[in-house]
Design a binder for these strands. Sequence first.
DNA 1: ACGGGTTCTGTAATCGATTACATAGCAGGT
DNA 2: ACCTGCTATGTAATCGATTACAGAACCCGT
Lengths: 328, 328
Amino acid sequence: MAGVSTATVSRAISNPSVVSEATREAVFDAIRRTGYHINMVARNLRRGRTGAIVVLVPNLGNPFFSLILAGIEQAAAPAGFSVLIVDTKQPHTDQDQLFTYLHTTRADELISLDGALPPDLLARQGEANALPPLVFACEWADESPFVKVVIDNEAGAAMAIRHLHELGHRRIGHVQGPRGNVLTEKRLAGTQKALEELGLPVRPEWFFAGDFSLHSGAEAARQWMALEERPTGVFCASDQMACGFISEIVSAGMSAPRDVSVVGFDDIDIARHFIPALTTIHQPRVAIGQAAARLLIERINDDSGGKAFMDQTLPVELIVRQSTGPAR
Amino acid sequence: MAGVSTATVSRAISNPSVVSEATREAVFDAIRRTGYHINMVARNLRRGRTGAIVVLVPNLGNPFFSLILAGIEQAAAPAGFSVLIVDTKQPHTDQDQLFTYLHTTRADELISLDGALPPDLLARQGEANALPPLVFACEWADESPFVKVVIDNEAGAAMAIRHLHELGHRRIGHVQGPRGNVLTEKRLAGTQKALEELGLPVRPEWFFAGDFSLHSGAEAARQWMALEERPTGVFCASDQMACGFISEIVSAGMSAPRDVSVVGFDDIDIARHFIPALTTIHQPRVAIGQAAARLLIERINDDSGGKAFMDQTLPVELIVRQSTGPAR
DNA sequence: ACGGGTTCTGTAATCGATTACATAGCAGGT
DNA sequence: ACCTGCTATGTAATCGATTACAGAACCCGT
């Protein structure tokens, strides 16, 4: 329709400066008139890319991840990348399935929000048919060679403990995340270190098992209530557990911060609207997603290939609300 | 390596029954040894499909959508479809961008969780360069010809009102969602109809403006508190607003259900752990996502093309918890 | 008028899997 | 021995965009 070859059309679209003014006009005019849209599949085949970033989410049903996904999408879409999501914890997602997804023919890049990927899957990174480049965000697999965008979990835990200490609490407990999770370990380590530095007791019965869920927070509260000598301050490794904890003591006729000061971690949406509003450690979830996506995109566009892309640690912040108060 | 042509390899992979036992073995053995993985881009180009479903989410940051996405992913992944997400409310997503995404070269199918897509975009459905088939889920554009998977919002609202009525409430208010939203309208209509059927007053000052957010629920609570004659029961069109409403009256020294019974809508995660636990209308979010994805997949695989795919309305359920009680 | 240089455009190969068509091989029947 | 029919496989075209290469058109200076 524009009276030119397909080669020229292609040039007009993907590299407009090499075609003449008049031709470019004619081509774009014809494109408008026909409603032509470029076939991404064909382009990607020829270019040897997929134009997609796969995000591995450990549990899509967990609203914690939604803002991180939003951040990834915000950074990826303007760069022309599609964002593809895979739930790594679905029953259908066995390891072979997963590997198929992770292969380079499906995605140019991976972002994993799941730190517990099957190890032998990660081990294949060096092979001939390698996985696409991978970035961890939020969670990560310790001692793996992959770049990560994370927050300083130890520092966050320490902030929570110091906050309780400043309010006069001397008996401080901790509700942990699921065993084996990196975040659990780091937050636990930060808690213990801060307690020791402040000269506070570290008593095993004040460390409650949990799994980040509301339910496990409530369970921890029951254990807490059964203690002879209760901590007056409790740092929960997630806001959900903090909410569960408070819910449970309230139904038992107690309240926070009157009977116990509670600090959460994450600063999820409800934290500020819970009753009492939750004192917590804020992590910048949108920024984490954006940073991870930008890092990947820069790495793709970096032809030199030699540039070293480094881990990023984003700052956390203590948000003091109503769930903590002076020790009695 | 298997001593056969590429055609035979292709057949062994995508239609194993047509190749001989021995050849099939040889091919799969070679595949294992080389670590070969099929190039999805090339396959999709040849097959004229993309293998992807695009999900249009009005606001990825809203955790309400996470379970719906999980449901979509659960149904799509086993069928070999990738799930691609696009946030329709991002500033970068202008209309042209959006149209590029929606075009058939990027996705075989669309699921829109956004009922407020630009109308002229939907109008293009009939054109030569049509949009891929679209299914609405949760929200939808009224009077559009697209199939939808939704819940019965009017019935849900009526359940909430009847519940309050049964508890003895005779002055009932409603906190609305954003104007123009289908869900807002349906829930409002259900509310008004139920009130009329029960012979209860429908007073304009008992209908509060809102936008589904926590914040707007708190704002409605302030208006409620300023009334001379307050409703004793309030039905909020979202759980978030119900939480905001209760938060606000609690900080003013009142409480639910002592001073007002509050019913929410959605049954989001925190609803059961809020203090007081929220009485609400439960909607099956995972099932909605699954149903939408399954419908699309069936429609793709249905060669006949003639089969009529119908709207699905999934049931809602009243969950009675602690935020409602007998009228005093 | 002619060589050198620039700019623009067309030709044709290419990415990797699929598939219509052709053909080879073999069994069974007459 | 020959034909029919079936199965298994190879050959080569195809999907649509990109791009190396070649060639056309034009400008400029001598």
